[in-house]
Design a protein around this nucleic acid. Sequence first.
DNA 1: TTGAAAGCGCTAACAT
DNA 2: ATGTTAGCGCTTTCAA
Lengths: 370, 370
Amino acid sequence: MATMQDVARRAQVSVSTVSYVLTGARPISQATRDKVLAAMAELDYQPNALARGLASRRSRILGLLLPMDERGIGATETAFVTGATSAAVAAGYHLVLSPIGVGDLDELRRLASQRILDGALLMEVQLHDPRVDVLREAGVPTVLIGRTEDPSGLSYVDIDFDRTVRAAVDHLVGLGHRRIVYVNHSADTIAEGYGPALRTRDSFTAAMTEHGLTPLMIPAEDSAASGRAALASALRQEPDLTAVLAMNESAVFGLLGELSTRGLTVPDDVSVVSMVTSPQVAELATPALTAMTSPGSALGRIAVQTLLRHVESGDGEIHQELLPCVLEVRGSSGPPRTPAASTTDPEAADERSSPGTEAARRRAATRRRA
Amino acid sequence: MATMQDVARRAQVSVSTVSYVLTGARPISQATRDKVLAAMAELDYQPNALARGLASRRSRILGLLLPMDERGIGATETAFVTGATSAAVAAGYHLVLSPIGVGDLDELRRLASQRILDGALLMEVQLHDPRVDVLREAGVPTVLIGRTEDPSGLSYVDIDFDRTVRAAVDHLVGLGHRRIVYVNHSADTIAEGYGPALRTRDSFTAAMTEHGLTPLMIPAEDSAASGRAALASALRQEPDLTAVLAMNESAVFGLLGELSTRGLTVPDDVSVVSMVTSPQVAELATPALTAMTSPGSALGRIAVQTLLRHVESGDGEIHQELLPCVLEVRGSSGPPRTPAASTTDPEAADERSSPGTEAARRRAATRRRA
DNA sequence: TTGAAAGCGCTAACAT
DNA sequence: ATGTTAGCGCTTTCAA
C-alpha cells in the first residue's frame, strides 16, 4: 500500500505538497499538481483514512443511527438512507449506518466517544430521547430525523405531520366522508412519547373538529392481527364509518384483511388512506392504497447537508425544517356509498343484511379497475 | 477529552503500561492494573479509535455491505443485521452498514482502500460479483452472505436453498398437491445470476421431478402487479394448479390479491407457501402465510465469527456453511380440494365455468375460519 | 513486571 | 508556491 511518502518521493516534492493537492488547503501550481496527480495514479495511491483522521481530527465519517426492530426497514426509511448516503458521498464523506436504538446506549457511548464519527443523524427520535444527551455529552454534532419534545437548540428535519394529516383528512372529507376513524400506532408507543404518534393524534383531532366532525382514534400494535382488532373495534364504536386513515403500515394489511373477511369492499364500503407509506408498499395491497408518500430522499439529503454545515463550521446555526407527505390517490379511496344516510338507501340496507353476496357482485363489476 | 497520557500521569505509570492494561497484550500486576483502571474511570477515559487504528493497523470496524433497493430491507435481512451486530459488539468490534450495491464499485473501492474496515460482510451476493474482486484487491478479509458461482477459496454462510425448497415441496406434496407452480424472482434477476433465484429454480425442478411431478416455474418482478400477472400466467399454463410456492415476497401479495379477485380462496382452492419469509411479513397476509422462515440471526452471528477468525488470524481457514429455512405452517396451506382429479368432480367442473359466483359462495361459508 | 521511545501516515503550523 | 517539521494518540519493539 503506497503512502504519501512514496508519492512525494516519486513526484519529487515534499509530503506537505502532496497533502495540499489532496486537501486543496493552499494553492499549488498546475505543474506541481500534475506531477503529484500522476505519481498518485501510478502508485494507485489511496490516503489512509485513519491517519488523516488522527492528524486532522476529522474522520470524514458520518453515522446514521437507525434502530432496527424486528420489522425491518421500510421503503420510506430506505429512501431516506439513500438520499443521505448520496449527499454524504458527494461531499467526500462516508455515511455508515449503525443499528443503535434507545436500548443500546452503551454502544452509542462507545461509538460517540471514540471519535469515529464527525457527526450523527438520529432516526426514530423519541420525544425524550436519551441518545440526544449521549451525543451532546460526547460532543458529536447531531441532526435529528424527527423531533424531541423541546427541540430548541437542535437541528432537525422531520415530516410535517400536521399538514400531512390535514391533507389526508381533507381528501376524505372532500370525497364526502363524515365518519372517519384514525388508526394510530399502539397505545404503548404513544405512552412512550413517540412523536409521530402524538403529533398525528393531535392533528387528526384538530382537523376533524375544524370540519365539524367527531374524531375517533384507535391505537394498534404494529401487526396485522392488531389491525384486524382495530377495525373491529372501530366498527363497534362507529358502525357507520366510511373511511379509515391509518398511520400504522403493518396494521393496514390486517385491517384490509378484516374488511374483506366481513365482506366490506374497498373503497365502496370503506375508504382507506395510509399515512407515510411508500408507493412500493401501497401497491402491495388490493386495491392499491391511496397514501401519503413521505419525502424520504429529500429529507435525507437535507439532513446531511445540515449536519455537514455543523461539522465543518464547528457548530453552525440551527436548522429546522418540516416537509409534508404528498397525497397519492390510488384505488383504496373514493366517495362513500351513501353520503351520511345509509338507511335511506334500500340497496344499502339490503347489503347490510347479506354483505357477502352483495360485495362479491360489486367486486365483479369493479374487477378490472385495480 | 482525556488521552492516554493523562491516564498515565494520573496513575503514575508510563503510557505503555496503560496501553497494555487496555489490550491485555502483556501481564500487568494487579496493583498497577487497579491504579490504571481507577485513573481511567476518574477521567472518563475513552481510547481514540483512530489513533489506535493507525498504530495497530486495525480499525476494529467491520463493514456490512448491504445494497438497499427502493423496496427496503426486509425482516429477514434485519434479523441478519441484528445477529451480526451483537456478535461484533460482543467481540469488541463495531459493525457498520454501508448501502453499497454492485453499482457503487467506486465508493466500495474508496471504503476498502482507505483501511477503514478490518473486514467485510457482503450481502446479496451475485454469482459473478465484482465486489468480491474489489475487496480481494484491497486486501480486505471478506465473508459472503450467499455464494458466487465458484466460491472455492471464499468463506461464506448462506441459506440452504436446496433443503428449503425440498421441505416446501414435500410439505405441499404431503398434503396431496400434484400441480405446484413456483413463482421465482424475475427473469432479469435470473439472467443477472442472482444465486437464490437460480438455486431454487434448480432445486424445485429436481424436487418435483423426483416426486414424479412436472415442474412449472414463473418468474415475477418484485412487485404486487407482477405477482398478479404471474398468477394469471400460471393459471393459463396450468389451469389445474392447486398450490403456489413463491420466492418473491412482494409478488406474493399481488398473487394473493389476484386469487381473491378471481374468487379463489386460500387455501381451499389454492395453497400458498412463501419462501424465506419472516413471521412478521407472513402474518401480514390474510390468511397468514405458511412460510419457510430464514435463520437470519444465526447466519449473522456465524458470519461475523467467521470473519473475525480471518481478521485476527491474518486469513484463517475457509469456512462454508449452509443453514436451511424452517417450515412454519400457517393458514395459507392445506389439502387440495379435489385430490388430483378435478374433472371427475361435477361441482369442480361447474366451478370452472363460473368461478366468480361459485367462489363467492364458498367464501361466505369459510369466512369465519380466517 | 515496567519504562522509553520509535513510529503508524497524515495535517497544519511555521518557514522561506 | 513550496519545504520542514512537530505533532495527532496510540501500539509495540527494545531495554531494563
